[in-house]
């Protein structure tokens, strides 16, 4: 006799009834714990792994020779040290821009194509970039954010990111700090992470890439920054732009010590 399961709520309740201990006083916390334990974003880790080792692009090579800062193909801990300076491009790069570099230089993809496809439409099966960024970051799960600012360009990038965090512009007069400079704030019902506190910024840097429930796909830090500028009524932040890398450098360095745990889960 087939069971008729009415919806995700039904299966969630089924779980709630049997596996939740007596102190289930806060249903929101229970829900968050459930999402953390069974995050659909995990499905993209396998996808990213496949993409990483597959021979792809006009040159038909994998990404195994891609250097994320610790040597070609070395992934454990790599994301915890990004952004960092790369001598071969003479630039400070984050994970996503480094993936662009490798997809272009190693695999022969066209830069405009890689960037155009980097952020997938909501409700799609996700982009290659999203899966790859998640897979590579997941190889550092359990490891601490460990960005250093030894190179001159790293220090410039960090300082620029700090400047940009507080830079107000546009008809909303918003800089990042307007929403992310205080504790216990929210816009409507969306909690705002307090990024000028150690705890807050560590929460930020340890949980991206993340599954965005409303979009049904994995989203990355590049996407998140783009989305902030969108709702600030500012022009479109270009993918892998210097502003995006500067802000990421600032946040990651501030978040040093945070333990990577991806995929995160966002609403």
């Amino acid at each position: 006799m087939p069971n008729l399961l009415g919806g995700i709520a039904a299966s969630a309740l089924l779980f709630l009834a049997v596996s939740v201990p007596a102190q289930a006083a806060d249903p929101l916390a229970v829900g968050r714990q459930m999402l953390a334990e069974d995050n659909p974003g995990e499905l993209w880790i396998e996808k990213g792994k496949t993409l990483f080792y597959e021979k792809r692009g006009p040159r038909g090579v994998s990404l195994e020779q891609c250097d994320f800062g610790m040597g070609p193909g070395k992934l454990e801990g790599a994301s915890t040290r990004l952004p960092r300076y790369f001598p071969d491009t003479d630039k400070v790069q984050d994970l996503e821009s480094r993936l662009v570099t490798c997809m272009v230089q190693l695999q022969g993809f066209k830069r405009e194509d890689v960037i155009r496809r980097a952020i997938s439409p909501g409700g799609s099966s996700g982009s290659d970039m999203e899966a790859l960024a998640l897979y590579i970051t997941s190889r550092s799960n359990g490891m601490k954010m460990n960005v250093s600012l030894n190179h001159q360009k790293e220090r410039e990038m960090y300082k620029a990111g700090e400047y940009l965090f507080f830079r107000r512009s546009g008809q909303t007069d918003f800089g990042c700090v307007q929403c992310h400079g205080d504790a216990n704030k929210r816009i409507r019902l969306q909690d705002l992470i307090h990024m000028t506190s150690k705890q807050g910024v560590q929460e930020v840097v340890s949980t991206w890439p993340a599954y965005r429930g409303a979009h049904y796909v994995v989203r990355t830090m590049q996407w998140r920054l783009y989305d902030c500028f969108w709702q600030m009524r500012l022009p479109e932040l270009a993918y892998a732009s210097d502003v995006s890398i500067a802000l990421t450098t600032y946040l990651h360095y501030q978040g040093n010590g945070a333990v990577t745990r991806v995929p995160g889960f966002k609403r």
Binding site: N3, L4, G7, I8, S11, Y216
Partner: peptide, 19 residues
């Protein structure tokens, strides 16, 4: 052990838990 009939009501990228 489980034979379930689902409908459109179930969300994208569904999760199923059972014991």
């Amino acid at each position: 052990v489980l034979d379930a009939e689902w409908t459109q009501a179930i969300s994208r990228n569904p999760f199923l838990g059972l014991r």
